[in-house]
Design a protein around this nucleic acid. Structure first.
Lengths: 154, 154
DNA sequence: ATGGGTGCAAAGCATTTGCAGTACA
DNA sequence: TGTACTGCAAATGCTTTGCACCCAT
């Protein structure tokens, strides 16, 4: 069981903690899937992409196990599902990232994250006004990215 | 072909306009589905709910047509799909409602809309900073509603 | 050893589609 | 009348599950 090369400091031990608390086993397969999500936080893969990537690296992991493990990681609070408007889930590392959202380019499909402190404060304020206790949120902004706007003008 | 009792003023003619422009036919079935979405904007039904509701009213509409029509209405820009975290789409009237979002109670499942001008301005600002041309957005806030918080404390 | 973990194939849902018949323009 | 629209059932695509075997503890 090797350490992830680019894992966030702390994230790995969170996974370990979760596994220990839930009396779940630490397996090679789970580590591989975990690393696939955490090593490149800008990718936002779906289950099929994780599966394909692992296969192409020579790891014989089944799609069923990818789904099982992703579900596990979502329940553990380490990973969040992400709706890019494609009708199925993508995944990204982390949960409870206040003020965090995504730009999704409708032309090229690129996804770009952003983080904004005002947004967090704003949502807290709106929630409080409604008597609503905010746990997490999901914000997607669809439009055209800088590059695609440039191309369109040419 | 009767008028919708509670349709937004203007919304109906938008639908008519869309149908005319796209050379689509105005049918009883499309009108029924349209009204089901627009008559109760707080309901956010999924396709199955629209279908069930129409059936219970004695209208023999097929689920396939409900899906086809909802897709049509989404493309027309009259209706927006809504991800309530259930793994399938719900629908609400309207598109391009800047500063619009949803609270979703994780305990009772109730959905509550909100509208906030600051949010709109904030997203525009963040988009501009990225060179991103904002078309629409989707914001869901998950947590516990006032009533469920009260019950929990008791 | 013993119970959880995994692969495989089959099942389960939401959604889409082919086709033949129906209804709007 | 002609073509779009609809219902039905089959097909599709993503995700879950049952079961037999495997492996971490």
């Amino acid at each position: 069981m090797t350490e992830s090369p680019r894992a966030k400091p702390g994230a790995r031990s969170e996974f370990d903690d979760f596994l220990r608390k839930a009396r779940l086993k630490k397996t090679r397969t789970r580590e591989l899937i975990f690393n696939e999500i955490f090593s490149r936080s800008t990718i936002h893969p779906d289950a099929a992409a994780v599966h394909k990537r692992l296969r192409s690296k020579g790891h014989g992991v089944s799609l069923a196990t990818v789904y099982r493990t992703l579900k596990l990681m979502v329940r553990s609070g380490l990973v969040s599902p992400l709706d890019l408007g494609e009708g199925h889930s993508h995944y990204e590392p982390g949960t409870n990232r206040p003020g965090h959202g995504h730009f999704i380019c409708l032309v090229c499909g690129r996804v770009c994250e952003f983080e904004n402190k005002e947004l967090r404060a704003l949502l807290d304020r709106v929630g409080e006004a409604e008597g609503f206790e905010l746990k997490k949120h999901s914000l997607q902004v669809f439009g055209t990215c800088r590059e695609c706007r440039k191309k369109k003008k040419e």
